[in-house]
């Protein structure tokens, strides 16, 4: 299905890199490296140069921590979205937020896509997406409260739950008026999931792809990779890329990443192996 992400449309065989840009002092991976607005802006320039089609700007780290109210979140990301929009008129700008109030503010500044990492915690977010003809990411969290860690969470079938919840969310967005080709689902690795759950949604990602909704995966340097390989943050790139390859083969469309170049190479290589992408240059053995 063709993807329409705000001002851009993408063919149904396109794989998209969504680069993470944190306007936070405390996110787990970059630890505040782009907390200063100019640093975040430099990060945007870098990932655009690296070929990212989408930037995902976030003002609140996912893990528990100091409470950030809507006004503070808007102060972190609102005008910054406007600045990025001015500098990059055609770039797809996503904002990582669960709050409708924040969604409205960033769409007014030119955001194309609302990445609701917390699974519809604010029921009015879909209305904002519809109002601004923006796209929306419908994630699965198992119904947990935003910014909480899973604790002894259990599923009879985590994949069935992820499919049921994300497709129900997608239908709710559709009913609210969001364009069908602007709705994406995301199993949300590690959100409301322990490592076994995240591994299972990876292993069975094809079942989510089979729903027909475009699938986003957010794997980058997460704890399920760390626990799988017993590696700390900062040493999880190879594991992340292995999971990326697996999801690429299953048919994921969007990859939310810290490392754009490496992920792009993996996704392109998988597509080339699968025959959906041509090699860049072929002369070996043929001259």
């Amino acid at each position: 299905m063709t993807l329409k992400l705000g001002r851009q449309a993408f063919a149904d065989d396109a794989s998209l890199m969504m680069a993470i840009v944190n306007r936070t002092p405390d996110s787990f991976y970059d630890k505040g490296a782009t907390w200063a607005e100019d640093s975040a802006f430099d990060r945007v320039a870098q990932v655009v140069d690296e070929g990212a089609e989408i930037v995902d700007i976030g003002g609140i780290k996912a893990a528990p921590g100091v409470e950030i109210d809507a006004a503070e979140e808007i102060s972190r990301v609102g005008s910054f979205v406007g600045r990025v929009r001015s500098a990059y008129p055609s770039l797809v700008i996503s904002v990582d937020t669960w709050r409708a109030e924040v969604g409205r503010a960033v769409c007014s500044e030119g955001a194309d896509l609302l990445n609701d990492a917390w699974g519809g915690a604010d029921p009015e977010l879909v209305d904002v997406a519809a109002e601004f003809d923006a796209a929306i990411i419908c994630t699965h969290t198992g119904g947990v409260t935003p910014r909480t860690r899973p604790h002894r969470i259990e599923y009879a079938d985590v994949v069935a739950a992820a499919i049921a919840d994300t497709t129900a969310y997608a239908e709710r967005a559709l009913a609210a008026g969001v364009s069908r080709d602007s709705i994406v689902i995301d199993p949300a690795h590690d959100f409301g999931k322990n490592t076994a759950h995240s591994l299972e949604v990876t292993r069975r990602l094809g079942e989510m792809v089979d729903t027909g909704w475009p699938v986003l995966v957010s794997l980058s340097n997460k704890d399920f990779v760390g626990e799988s390989l017993d590696l700390p943050v900062g040493e999880r790139l190879i594991g992340t890329l292995a999971a990326t390859a697996f999801c690429a083969q299953a048919g994921a469309r969007i990859y939310r990443v810290h490392e754009v170049v490496e992920t792009r190479q993996v996704v392109d290589m998988v597509a080339t192996i699968m025959g959906s992408r041509q090699p860049a240059r072929v002369t070996r053995g043929l001259a």
């Binding site: 041509q278 090699p279 240059r281 072929v282 043929l286 001259a287």
Partner: peptide, 14 residues
């Protein structure tokens, strides 16, 4: 007589 007379085989076409 190269097979590359039939098709490029890749995106680049030397």
């Amino acid at each position: 007589s190269t097979p590359l007379m039939i098709a490029a085989g890749g995106t680049a076409d030397p």
